[in-house]
C-alpha cells in the first residue's frame, strides 16, 4: 500500500457481526463448531473502533469510515448499526465457503478487502466477543505489510503518523506508527455514539459493497472448513466444581463473609 498523500482521512474499521452474547449459542456435535443460527448483531467491542474512526475523520475534516466485514451468509444488520452511527460505506465479503474460517483465513479475507479500500488507517477491536483469538489484527497487518500498534487506549493522527497510547502491564507506551497502519483499540476508550433516528434512516441507503471470494481472487479451498489447518481432536466436559454454600442476605451476610475470611486466616 502506498502512503497517503494528505487529507482526506479514510479509515477502515473491521467489524464483526456476532450472535447476541445474551444468547451464546451452542456447540454443534456434528461439525464441532459454534452454532450461530440466531440473528447477528454488531460486536459491541467494535463500536469503539467505529467511534474512534468517526472522531478521527471529524478531526481531519474530510474523509470516511469504511466498514469491512465478512460472513458466510449475507447478514447486514450489524453493519447497519455501524452505518447508522456514521460510517459512510461498507464492504461485506459474503460467501458460504467462509463458514468455519479460522483466524488466519479470516485475516486473509479481511486483508484482501481492505487492500481495495486503500485506507490511511485500519482500526480493529483487540478481539471479537465470540471467538476471542485476538490474533486477527496483527495477522491483517502482516499480510498487508503494515506496521501495527495493538491494545490502543487512544489514537491521534498528524500528517503521516498515528500516535497511539498502547496498554502495557504497568501503564502505557506512546507508539508512533507511520501511516497506513493497523491499530487495535481496547474497549471503553471512547463513548460510542447512539445512532440517531436520522442516522438509522440514512443507513438504509448507504452503500454496502457485497463481494464473494471470487471477486477478491481468493480460492475457496484456502478458507472456511476446507482451508482450516487446525482440527478439534477432542471435546470433554470439565469436572464440575463442588457446589458451595448459598446464603440469602437477611441483613447480616457481611458477617458470613467475615467468618469465611477469618477461617482462611486472611484477615
Amino acid at each position: 500500500m502506498e502512503p497517503p498523500d494528505s487529507d482526506p482521512m479514510n479509515v477502515v474499521v473491521c467489524v464483526k457481526q456476532i450472535p447476541d452474547p445474551a444468547d451464546p449459542g451452542r456447540m454443534d456435535p456434528e461439525t464441532r463448531t459454534l452454532k450461530r443460527d440466531v440473528r447477528l448483531i454488531l460486536d459491541e467491542s467494535d463500536s469503539y473502533g467505529v467511534e474512534m474512526g468517526l472522531q478521527l475523520v471529524d478531526a481531519a475534516g474530510e474523509g470516511e469510515v469504511i466498514l469491512v466485514s465478512m460472513v458466510p451468509n449475507n447478514e447486514v444488520s450489524g453493519l447497519r448499526t455501524a452505518l447508522a452511527m456514521g460510517a459512510g460505506s461498507a464492504v461485506l465479503v459474503s460467501d458460504e465457503a467462509l463458514a468455519g474460517s479460522d483466524a488466519l483465513s479470516t485475516a486473509k479475507v479481511l486483508a484482501a478487502a481492505i487492500r481495495r479500500c486503500e485506507p490511511d488507517l485500519v482500526i480493529t477491536a483487540t478481539e471479537s466477543s465470540d471467538g476471542y483469538t485476538g490474533t486477527v489484527p496483527v495477522q491483517v497487518a502482516e499480510l498487508l505489510d503494515l506496521p501495527s500498534a495493538t491494545f490502543a487506549k487512544s489514537i491521534e493522527v498528524s500528517g503521516d503518523t498515528a500516535t497511539v497510547q498502547r496498554q502495557t502491564e504497568d501503564g502505557y507506551d506512546v507508539i508512533e506508527c507511520s501511516l497506513p497502519c493497523v491499530v487495535s483499540v481496547t474497549a471503553g476508550v471512547v463513548e460510542p455514539r447512539y445512532p440517531s433516528f436520522k442516522g438509522i434512516m440514512a443507513a438504509k441507503n448507504k452503500p454496502v459493497d457485497e463481494l464473494d471470494l471470487a471477486a477478491l481472487g481468493i480460492d475457496p479451498a484456502t478458507v472456511g472448513w476446507a482451508g482450516a489447518r487446525q482440527e478439534i481432536v477432542d471435546i470433554t466436559e470439565a469436572p464440575a466444581s463442588e457446589a458451595g454454600e448459598i446464603v440469602h442476605d437477611e441483613g447480616d451476610a457481611h458477617e458470613r463473609i467475615l467468618a469465611f475470611l477469618d477461617d482462611l486466616k486472611i484477615i
Binding site: 501495527s148 500516535t163 507506551d173 506512546v174 507508539i175 508512533e176 507511520s178
Partner: peptide
C-alpha cells in the same frame, strides 16, 4: 513496512 512503529515514551 512492518517495522514502522516506534516506542517514543
Amino acid at each position: 513496512n512492518t517495522g514502522g512503529s516506534t516506542v517514543k515514551d
